[in-house]
């Protein structure tokens, strides 16, 4: 899992390229922003866990 800070002025990542390039030629720079966006949206929906106690369920 990367912890390198994301620069906010990065140009948008191209989905067209990720669709067209062979899977094994995709770099972290190609995929990370997409994964971040999708996971952030997913986690936004599931972030608030039902458990209120100081434990995780």
């Amino acid at each position: 899992m990367t912890t390198a800070p994301l620069r906010q002025d990065e140009p948008p990542v191209s989905l067209v390229r990720v669709r067209a390039e062979p899977l094994d030629r995709l770099s972290a720079a190609d995929i990370s922003p997409i994964v971040r966006r999708v996971m952030a949206a997913h986690l936004d929906q599931t972030r608030i866990p039902a458990a209120k106690f100081s434990s995780f369920i």
Binding site: M1, L15, V16, V18, R19, L23, L26, A28, D30, I31, S32, I34, V35, V38
Partner: peptide, 17 residues
Amino acid sequence: EAQIAIVRALLAEVADR
């Protein structure tokens, strides 16, 4: 097509881990 690209990125990330 955009969805397929997204899934490809997710697959590559799973593989990366």
